[in-house]
């Protein structure tokens, strides 16, 4: 196995319980199962995938193909909170470029990167569907609209 040397800090029985809940659905339980586990662990490790594959009867290669297809599933460690900044048309028209720069400045990282303390991962995300709040970003599940560089600083508590 590649990269199974990661040390896991998560609660294995809790993951087992999630898998058990979705087991009866077989492959149709794959997406919700992976999503629930990831909400717990942050990302999907090879050994989690092996457990899920064995219990839901899904080939391992297929699980990898699925994870790699969906942008909200992660196969590498990410920060505790993922910041998704929208830079599509409606947000661009309302100043998303400035918002994105201030996220970059305050976090000291670029899109796709994670802060050294593991707190944040920054992403430029395709249109998130909150164009009435443009420019906007999501921090985890929280939506923040009408952003300005000042508001970004407040959100990150850097002032």
């Amino acid at each position: 196995m590649t990269e199974t040397t990661e040390t896991f800090t998560y609660d294995y029985p809790a993951i087992e319980a999630i898998v058990t809940r979705h087991e009866a659905k077989g492959r149709a339980g794959l997406l919700p199962c992976l999503q629930e586990i990831q909400a717990f662990t942050g990302w999907l490790t090879p050994d989690i995938c092996q457990l899920v594959g064995r219990r839901l009867d899904v080939p391992l290669a297929d699980i990898y193909g699925v994870i790699d297809f969906y942008t909200l599933l992660y196969r590498e460690p990410v920060g505790k909170t993922i910041i998704r900044v929208c830079d599509d048309m409606a947000c661009y028209l309302n100043g998303s470029e400035e918002v994105l720069s201030s996220f970059k400045k305050w976090l000291g990282i670029g899109p796709g990167e994670t802060t050294p303390d593991g707190k944040y991962t920054l992403e430029v995300h395709p249109c998130l569907g909150y164009c009435d709040l443009a420019p906007m970003a999501m921090m985890g599940d929280d939506v923040h609209g009408h952003l300005t560089p000042d508001k970004v600083a407040d959100l990150l508590e850097v002032k």
């Binding site: 599509d88 048309m89 249109c127 569907g129 164009c131 009435d132």
Partner: peptide, 11 residues
Amino acid sequence: DESEPGTFKDR
């Protein structure tokens, strides 16, 4: 699964 950029009426 509303995802068309500029669309938020289903939300």
